[in-house]
């Protein structure tokens, strides 16, 4: 599972073809008259970790399941490893790792039996015990899956997703039910997969997770793509202007400025001393995301203004 040392810097040494591993153009999916996904286009480059963000019901899972071959699209073109998922055969599936949004049951087999079973489906699987260790289940490897907690079952799903050494890994809300420590461990696993050259498509509700893992993110709201770009650039420069916040006799004040330190200095001079509750905040991915979703008309604007997740400078 570990990145091969000595090849530091050459992330793609095991991926022959360069270019895009996923290509989605004008994708549409309609149920009756209802459009679950409309006119969505994006590409994922080989070796890239790409996060698909959006509120519940925005069309993330529909999109990911179309890419996995589970659903048929209504319109548009989709290529995954150069193949239309509706025509993907078993050799194509062998190059994918899929972690679905909901776990499968398999209550009566042990962790190791299940991972070992799935390893056999692939021609070049990873080592079973290494994968179990990488998802932190070594001590539970002889426990039946039905006796595991929700978060531990989720880690079994992740183990099954990576056991086949996929070129492309789909992770649909992979860390739901993880405790903070398990989440950090999972991030470490994803980074090592990435260092091995695995391309990853991730959906998550944890914006800090997307910020930590993704190279680029796309935001979907109401079935439409509202923004796409590198994690540190989406929403544009405007959305990232720092906020200076302080309190005085008249209440809480906020000022958005590109020069927060200078502003704070002037504030210090003007208030003749230390301003109360002074904070300088840089909008996090979560703030930017909520702003984008609000702008797309899904949330009342007030929800986007302040969140507890702002990064402190």
């Amino acid at each position: 599972m570990q990145a091969r040392r000595g090849h530091a810097g050459s992330m793609n040494q095991s991926t022959p073809a360069s270019g895009n591993i996923v290509e989605v153009e004008n994708l549409g999916k309609h149920y009756g008259g209802l459009a679950a996904v409309a006119d969505v286009s994006f590409d994922i480059r080989r070796g890239e970790t790409f996060a698909l963000l959006g509120p519940n019901g925005a069309g993330k899972s529909t999109t990911i399941e179309i890419l996995e071959g589970y659903r048929d699209r209504t319109s548009g073109t989709v290529r995954v490893l150069g193949v239309d998922p509706q025509k993907g055969d078993i050799a194509w599936k062998a190059q994918l790792g899929i972690v679905l949004q909901s776990s499968a049951e398999a209550a009566h087999v042990t962790v190791r039996e299940q991972v070992e079973q799935f390893a056999a489906y692939y021609d070049r699987p990873r080592d079973v015990d290494e994968v179990i260790a990488a998802v932190g289940l070594t001590e539970k490897s002889r426990t039946r899956i039905g006796k595991l907690s929700g978060g531990q079952r989720r880690r079994v799903d992740v183990a099954l997703g990576v056991i086949g050494r996929p070129q492309l890994l789909f992770l649909d809300e992979p860390t739901t039910g993880f405790d903070p420590e398990a989440r950090r461990q999972f991030w470490q696993l994803i980074r090592s997969l990435k260092a091995d050259g695995t391309s990853i498509l991730l959906t998550t509700h944890y914006l800090d997770e997307a910020a930590h893992l993704a190279d680029r993110v796309a935001v979907i709201a109401d079935g439409r793509l509202v923004e796409i770009g590198p994690v540190d650039a989406i929403g544009g420069a405007e959305a990232r202007i720092p906020v200076v916040r302080w309190r005085d006799g008249a209440g809480l004040h906020e000022e958005r400025t590109l020069e927060p330190a200078a502003f704070a200095g002037r504030l210090f001079a003007a208030t003749n001393g230390e301003p109360r509750d002074l904070e300088i905040l840089r909008p996090s991915l979560e703030d930017v995301y909520l702003g984008l979703v609000a702008a797309a008309g899904r949330l009342p604007t007030s929800a986007a203004e302040t969140t507890g997740e702002t990064a402190h400078v």
């Binding site: 996995e68 071959g69 589970y70 078993i90 050799a91 599936k93 062998a94 994918l96 899929i98 679905l100 909901s102 776990s103 499968a104 049951e105 398999a106 799935f118 489906y121 692939y122 099954l160 086949g164």
Partner: peptide, 12 residues
């Protein structure tokens, strides 16, 4: 329970 869905996404 999702077993078949998972198998359907695997190369079995």
């Amino acid at each position: 329970d999702g077993t078949l869905k998972r198998l359907g996404g695997s190369p079995l």
